[in-house]
Design a protein around this nucleic acid. Structure first.
Lengths: 198, 198
DNA sequence: CCATTTAATGAACAATGTTCAATAAATAAT
DNA sequence: ATTATTTATTGAACATTGTTCATTAAATGG
């Protein structure tokens, strides 16, 4: 067979990422193969290499969309209340996202690029935008010292990430099921209480 | 060829794990294949399956030894000074371990078992023992409330894990090189300062 | 010295990512 | 209309992967 015109290049790109997401959701990362993906969109494996440099590239693109979805989830939380409740709402949204999108989130942070190349710039940009959402909530409690605010932002972000990461992989010896929420709340509350001026 | 008696079963086991560690160190996880490993110990691929259920099993065993090494690294830090400096020394040792044993540490926390089976009990035991080292340092500041101490232990542990994890993968937008140390110190100091009774 | 056990092999199988000449549909040119 | 050119799609091909297992010969026991 040869050239078809069932879909435009853009449609194929879309279909591929959607299919990849679906495979991840239902069968996990090991099932995400060039052949299974191609079968799902009704094309041959070779076609994928017309759209993506390779499977790694496809995963990076998918991660980009996952970052967007995460951003949207955080943007959906209201900006009211004091700093602690605002941060807590953000954390809750984050945790909920990692639970509802387990596989996507795992791939997002566990996928490592092959030796040599590092994360693209637009990727860093999306990460920075996520951090900014947290940092904004910290302005009232750390209004002047930007360096200190940057540190606090990263510490809270990484702390939350660590909790979710270890929690999901069963390497935190969690007591109950909602133990994650408790720990995140503890982190936020205690850390905030320890900031200079409190 | 057939049966040899160059090495005992235990020696082969040892050689395999050592070779695996060496391959990880020098060439990273993708290079850890049954054939490369077999070649390195001077045996055929089939022999490995006489020692380990499969490659996943081998990695789990290796991770066990990595946990032991991490434990040893933490046990080597002195138990003096106040709680903050004790925790800080532990954190510094942890960070140093993740830097000096980058690949081993990555495999330790990023390796996922195939769908279904979960981490073995002895694995959980080793993790618990690591946490215990941190918890011990927290006794002076949280002497009575064991639940609260358990939470604080996990929060600090996961926080440190998150910092190292994001830091090493370049997903934290770190400012300087020793930014990790600064952030870990910030986490410990601020969190401790925020505990009830301070 | 023979019989039995057993460790080691390496060929074989299915499945992987990736490449690329072949092909035919779509488009452009005449 | 017909022809020429471009281009999207294919699927066979290649190298590698994890894993299995009949075959083989060394070690062990009688």
């Amino acid at each position: 067979m040869a050239r078809r015109s069932d879909h435009t290049r853009e449609e194929l790109y879309r279909m591929s990422l959607d299919a990849a997401r679906e495979i991840l959701r239902n069968q996990g990362l090991p099932a995400l193969t060039a052949r299974s993906l191609a079968a799902r969109i009704g094309y041959s494996p070779g076609t994928l290499y017309n759209l993506f440099r390779n499977l790694d590239d496809l995963v990076v693109q998918l991660n980009g969309e996952t970052l967007d979805a995460l951003q949207a989830a955080l943007d959906a939380v209201p900006d009211d209340g004091d700093t602690e409740t605002r941060l807590w709402h953000l954390a809750r949204a984050y945790i909920a996202f990692t639970v509802e999108n387990r596989e996507l989130w795992n791939v997002l942070f566990e996928h490592r690029l092959p030796e040599g190349e590092d994360v693209p710039d637009w990727y860093r940009g999306k990460l920075a935008r996520l951090l900014a959402r947290v940092e904004a909530a910290l302005v009232p409690v750390i209004p002047d010292d930007v360096a200190a605010r940057g540190r606090a932002t990263r510490v809270l972000w990484a702390g939350l990430h660590g909790l979710c990461s270890l929690g999901q992989s069963g390497k935190l010896a969690l007591v109950a099921e909602d133990g994650l929420d408790d720990l995140a709340r503890d982190l936020i509350r205690t850390y905030l209480a320890g900031l200079p001026g409190h």
